[in-house]
C-alpha cells in the first residue's frame, strides 16, 4: 500500500479551511471581515504553495509509525469519555473513575507488580489527587465544579 503523504493531505485540509473561512466572511461589514479575510487569504496562499511544494518534493515522513497507536487511541477516547462522564455524574466521581482507570491501564507494562497492587496504587492516586484538588478548587477558590445531571446539574 502506498504511504499517505501527510504534507499533501494537510495542505488540502488547510486549503479547505481557508476557503471556508473566506466563504463565511461574506455578508459581514468591512470592519468585521477585513481581518479574518486577510488571515484567510494568507492561509490560502501559503497552503497552495505548500501543496505545490509537497507534490514537487515528496518527502517520506513517518509521522505515526513509531508510536503505540492503541495507547494513543485509548488516551484520546478516554479524555472524551471523561468529559461525558463529568456531564453525567459530576466532576469528583468522574475524576476518581478516570484517574483510577488510566493509572491502572498505563501500568500494564509493569510486569513485576501484581494486579492487586496496581489497583491499590491507582486507587490511592485517584482518590488523593481528585479529592485534594476538588477541595482546593471548590472551597478555597470557590469554583463551582459541575455536579453532573444525575446530581441535579
Amino acid at each position: 500500500m502506498q504511504r499517505v503523504n501527510h504534507d499533501i493531505v494537510s495542505s488540502i485540509i488547510f486549503i479547505f479551511v481557508a476557503a471556508f473561512a473566506l466563504w463565511e466572511t461574506r455578508g459581514l461589514s468591512e470592519m468585521s471581515y477585513v481581518f479574518p479575510r486577510t488571515a484567510g487569504i494568507i492561509l490560502l496562499v501559503c497552503s497552495i504553495i505548500f501543496f505545490i511544494k509537497s507534490i514537487i518534493k515528496k518527502e517520506d515522513k513517518k509521522a505515526f509509525d513509531d508510536i503505540n497507536k492503541r495507547k494513543v487511541m485509548v488516551m484520546s477516547l478516554g479524555m472524551i469519555g471523561y468529559l461525558i462522564v463529568i456531564g453525567l455524574v459530576g466532576f469528583l466521581i468522574a475524576s476518581i473513575i478516570y484517574i483510577w482507570a488510566f493509572c491502572f491501564y498505563l501500568q500494564r507494562d509493569e510486569k513485576e507488580k501484581s494486579n492487586k497492587s496496581k489497583m491499590l496504587h491507582a486507587g490511592i492516586t485517584a482518590f488523593g489527587v481528585s479529592i485534594f484538588f476538588f477541595v482546593l478548587f471548590k472551597f478555597v477558590f470557590a469554583v463551582p465544579l459541575p455536579p453532573g445531571i444525575f446530581f441535579g446539574g
Binding site: Y82, L83, Y98, I99, C103, T125, A126, S130
Partner: peptide, 12 residues
C-alpha cells in the same frame, strides 16, 4: 501517575 493527573488538571 503523572499522565492521568495532568489530564485531570487540564480539565479542571
Amino acid at each position: 501517575y503523572l499522565a492521568p493527573s495532568i489530564v485531570f488538571l487540564t480539565i479542571v
